[in-house]
Amino acid sequence: MTITLDGAEMTAHITGEIDHHTAAFLRSGIDAAFVRQKPKTLILDFSGVTFMDSSGVGLALGRYKKTKETRCTLVLAGLNERDKRMMKLSGMQKMEGIEFR
């Protein structure tokens, strides 16, 4: 995973597989940068993800709790149709402050 900054927009470019094991590393990396950078928009870019189970949904929901606290917008980008379907099982598409791109 790499993290890039563009003004007040922070993007976490996630690569590889997201499961319960790898989600722990992703979570700590994103959260540390989020606290340091205090972005107005946090983009989770899933375009480099080759596999995801519901741990990916948990990762997004967990970050949403953080972005909500600081009134930051959470953007879920680059999801394939299958992973988008999994995200939507959680009802995230109806939550205020989350955008799908």
Binding site: S55, G58, M86, L89, S90
Partner: peptide
């Protein structure tokens, strides 16, 4: 915390 509660839902889907 970080669990979505979707494990069985995803298995069923």
């Amino acid at each position: 915390g970080e669990r979505s509660g979707l494990g069985f839902t995803v298995m069923e889907s």
